[in-house]
Amino acid sequence: MIHSGLLICSFFVKERYGRDDSKVINLNNEIHIEQVGNEETYNSIWKLFSDFFNNHLDLSDDESSMKLFSIARDSIKEFDTDSYHCASFIINSGSYGIEGKLTNRTTKEVKYNRTREDADVKQFHALIYIPKDADGIKVQKGILLFQSIGTFGVKTITTKQIKDYFAQKGLTFETRSVSISVFLKRILEENRIKKVTLLKNCTSIDSSDNMLISTGREEKVYYSPKFKESFIQRIIDFVDGKKDDTIFEINDNLYEDISISFNLSGRTRTAKLKDIDRFSLVEDIPDSIYNNGNTNYDDIIRHMIGTAESYKEKMVFRIAE
């Protein structure tokens, strides 16, 4: 059976040449963009997303990643409530560059010889979710959800296309993890960890070596570890922004980073703690909804909105106070 999942991340937008988070944009407010000889005003971020959709209805060729990309016509649906606004859409995307034979599994007959110019274009559901401002809080972060099918996904190609489009408007589009501390605590407590690797640069005891070169990198690996509650809390505190470097001090040794490999959606994924803020979560779509590819559009969109709602409760929606 082919399984499907939801890759979940957060996003924010800031002025392209802003050097700090003070340039982050309030997503539900009017946006003013000043460029050389031109000034544009948008009533909210949704007008920019609408323009992005309309500019990508035809298949485009991203030669750097060897992928085709487009937004399926008539697939865009918007939902507006008192607490959020979101837009669902379908992405057409597929890779080319590999030759192959499309073979009937029953008859073993070759139906088509695939050339390097042929792209296997599939359809993936996606959702952009932004909460409404409430209790005096101006929302600066939204949630992105991308469907994955088996080993195929569209997060990288889609966010690249969005970034390129926003850059033309003088804006920077950034993605980050969403509620990563909640996720990490769950996989740590459920013993899903397959491997933990402690990383540090190794220096020579010869002082003349230390003036010129590093002598390599030391890795210490623990397989199927079980953590003490106190160490789990140190990790959670670290990813929650309490950047205490003592998390990397273990048995009187100071490590540069910690790499964690764990089971997720039937696959092994690896993340380094210092880069964990850029890690994207993947949640399984229940087989009752995906049903081996027999998907009802309304059912999967309801599931995606419900997933975004559940993560909304665990997020802080401002970058800078």
Rank of each mutant, 00 (worst) to 15 (best):
G5K: 04
L6R: 02
L6N: 14
F11R: 08
D21N: 13
D21H: 01
L27A: 11
N29G: 01
E30N: 05
I31K: 06
Q35T: 08
T41V: 11
N43V: 08
S44T: 10
W46I: 01
K47Q: 09
L48W: 02
D51F: 01
F53S: 02
N54Y: 07
N55V: 00
N55C: 07
N55W: 07
L57N: 12
E63W: 06
K67F: 00
L68R: 14
F69D: 04
A72R: 12
R73C: 09
S75P: 13
E78W: 00
E78Y: 01
T81V: 04
S83I: 07
I90R: 10
Y96L: 09
E99K: 12
G100Y: 04
G100W: 10
L102Q: 01
R105Q: 10
T106F: 11
K108T: 03
N113D: 13
R114P: 01
R114V: 07
T115A: 08
T115R: 12
D118I: 05
F124P: 01
L127H: 07
Y129N: 12
D135A: 05
G136T: 09
I137M: 09
Q140H: 08
K141L: 05
G142P: 10
F146P: 00
Q147M: 07
Q147I: 03
T151H: 07
K155H: 08
T158F: 08
K163T: 14
D164F: 04
Y165T: 05
Y165Q: 04
F173M: 05
T175Q: 02
T175L: 04
S179I: 01
S181C: 01
V182N: 15
L184H: 06
E190P: 01
N191R: 11
N191V: 03
R192K: 14
I193E: 04
K194G: 05
K195Q: 12
V196L: 10
T197L: 01
L199F: 03
N201L: 02
S204C: 15
N210F: 04
I213W: 13
T215V: 12
E218C: 04
V221D: 10
S224N: 15
K228H: 14
E229H: 15
S230P: 01
F231V: 02
Q233L: 12
R234Y: 09
I236F: 06
D237S: 10
V239T: 13
K242W: 00
D244M: 03
T246L: 05
T246P: 00
E249H: 03
I250R: 11
L254T: 14
L254V: 07
L254K: 14
Y255W: 08
E256A: 15
S261T: 12
S265R: 08
G266R: 05
R269P: 00
K274I: 11
D275E: 14
F279Y: 14
F279E: 11
F279M: 13
L281N: 06
L281R: 13
D284R: 04
P286A: 01
N292I: 00
G293Q: 11
N294E: 13
N294M: 07
N294Y: 13
Y297T: 15
Y297M: 02
D299N: 14
I301Q: 03
R302E: 14
E309Q: 15
Y311P: 12
K312P: 02
K314T: 13
F317W: 06
R318I: 10
R318A: 03
